[in-house]
Each structure stands twice: as C-alpha cells, then as structure tokens.
C-alpha cells in the first residue's frame, strides 16, 4: 500500500516525531511504500540540522535524515511552517544572506499543494501530532 505520513509536532516536545519514525520503519519493513513524508507546522523542526546531542546519542533529527536518505523518500517540508521557524533550505538561506542552510538536504521545501497531492494519491494518509 502507498502511505503518506504527516508530522505536525516538533521532536522532543512530544512523542509524535519518534512514533512517526517507528511507524514509517515498520511499514517499509512490511513491503509497503511511502508516497510522501510531509513535515508540517512544528513538525518542520524534525528537518533542522542545527541540533546537537550528547556524544553517544543520535538526535531524532539525524535519525529522520538518515532514514529519508537511506530509503530515498520523497520528503517535503512545508514552506509556510518552515521559514518562520528558522528551517531554511539553501535557496532561502542564500536569499536571506545566511551563510548556510539550517535544513537537511534530504528534504525539499514545498507548499501545501504537495500535502494535498499526498492526501489524494496515497492509499493511506497517517497524521502524527
């Protein structure tokens, strides 16, 4: 089955970012596919690469990034939610004259149309917040 996953809550503030990741791994493990991952509202913080954790830990953001990269998942960060929360892709960072992007390159910035496209074209849309 084709799934799309929407995350609307920030990592650590709630369990949702961790739940969504475990769910995503489980569904790929069963041979289902992810049509799209959509980071929405505070969920965009999951794509922030400017995070640090204790040496022996892996941040949730890093875990999401490796998961997305490893499985080449279509991952979209909502533009309206992201920019006002300081999650900037390379293009926006450059435009605002920041030296580097704060967003992982494994996701792409796009609008709500991509969320609607996911809702329309997936067999199941599952929201975590």
């Amino acid at each position: 089955m084709k799934f799309s996953i929407v995350l609307t809550a920030a990592p650590y503030s709630s369990e949702a970012a961790a739940t969504a990741l475990k769910f995503a791994k489980a569904l790929l493990g069963q041979g289902h596919t992810i049509y799209r991952l959509f980071f929405f509202n505070d969920g965009v913080h999951a794509a922030n690469r400017f995070t640090t954790v204790a040496e022996n830990e892996i941040s949730l953001q890093q875990q999401w990034d490796s998961f997305i990269a490893q499985h080449k998942i279509d991952s979209v960060v909502c533009v309206t939610s992201a920019f006002k929360r300081g999650v900037l892709d390379e293009q926006e960072a450059k435009r605002q004259q920041f030296e580097v992007a704060s967003m992982y390159g494994s996701s792409e910035i796009a609008g709500l149309g991509q969320l609607i496209d996911a809702a329309v074209n997936s067999d199941r849309l599952v929201n975590f917040g």
């Binding site: 609307t8 929405f40 509202n41 309206t80 939610s81 609008g111 709500l112 149309g113 969320l115 609607i116 496209d117 809702a119 329309v120």
Partner: peptide
C-alpha cells in the same frame, strides 16, 4: 495556537487543487 489557521490554509489549498 495556529491550528485553526493551518486547517483553513490546508483546506484552501485543497480547493485550489479542485478536490
């Protein structure tokens, strides 16, 4: 919270895409 606004924005996006 901004959930009411988000809900509205998302619905408007869906309307633009003729759902």
């Amino acid at each position: 919270s901004d959930r009411a606004q988000l809900c509205l924005d998302t619905a408007l996006a869906a309307a633009v895409f003729d759902q």
